[in-house]
């Protein structure tokens, strides 16, 4: 197997109601684009960005919902083996905030118990239309033991910070768990990919 050009690889998964700006956040971060090109997401499974943190190369694999959240039909397998979840709502849409407990239940049921969850209130560029106060969101995230951040994918506010902070936390978590970050098994989830498994069996 070839030497991979990174020290860590993490799978980050976005969830939240339709229209809260999940794809925009990913596009803004990985490509610096806003708004994302129409139809361009067809066939794109996940986006990649490699960042450098304290001299270490961290490859972030960022997965979007592929529209399955529109009719509440996200597959369970989407949550499996995610290292981090970005739970997004729209600060100008009360409904998207109200749905958060429902999303949390899905996380509890399907995601790994080691997963890190970040709550993101997006669209702070539309502050005049805000429906969910920062304080309410902070209280909620505290009660749920989640890290909380408000962003604007449009103005690029806090988007870098969101992903970079997350990367830092993932690194320290990975170290704490004394998980040797095996390059052939890039996802320190509970399972193994076909390839990793095969290597092991023939040692």
């Amino acid at each position: 197997m070839s030497m991979e050009d990174y020290d860590f690889l993490f799978k980050i998964v976005l969830i939240g109601n339709a229209g809260v700006g999940k794809t925009c956040l990913v596009r803004r971060f990985t490509q610096g684009l806003f708004p994302p090109g129409q139809g361009a997401t067809i066939g794109v499974d996940f986006m990649i960005k490699t960042v450098e943190i304290n001299g270490e190369k961290v490859k972030l694999q960022i997965w979007d919902t592929a529209g399955q959240e529109r009719f509440r039909s996200i597959t369970q397998s989407y949550y499996r083996s995610a290292n981090a979840l970005i739970l997004t709502y729209d600060i100008t849409c009360e409904e998207s905030f109200r749905c958060l407990p429902e999303w949390l239940r899905e996380i509890e049921q399907y995601a790994s118990n080691k997963v890190i969850t970040v709550l993101v209130g997006n669209k702070i560029d539309l502050a005049e239309r805000r429906e969910v106060s920062q304080q309410r969101a902070e209280e909620f995230s505290e009660a749920q033991d989640m890290y909380y951040l408000e962003t604007s994918a449009k103005e690029s506010d806090n988007v870098e910070k969101l992903f970079l902070d997350l990367a830092c936390r993932l690194i320290s978590e990975a170290r704490q768990n004394t998980l040797v970050n095996n390059v052939s098994s890039p996802l320190p989830g509970e399972g193994k990919s076909i390839s990793y498994l095969t290597c092991c069996n023939f040692n």
């Binding site: 067809i42 794109v44 499974d45 592929a66 529209g67 009719f71 509440r72 597959t75 369970q76 499996r80």
Partner: peptide, 21 residues
Amino acid sequence: ELPQCFCRMCAVFGGIYCLRH
């Protein structure tokens, strides 16, 4: 998990999903 994996692929290419429908 397997049917779901193929459903994800369908959705990635634009397929629309509705459970409870």
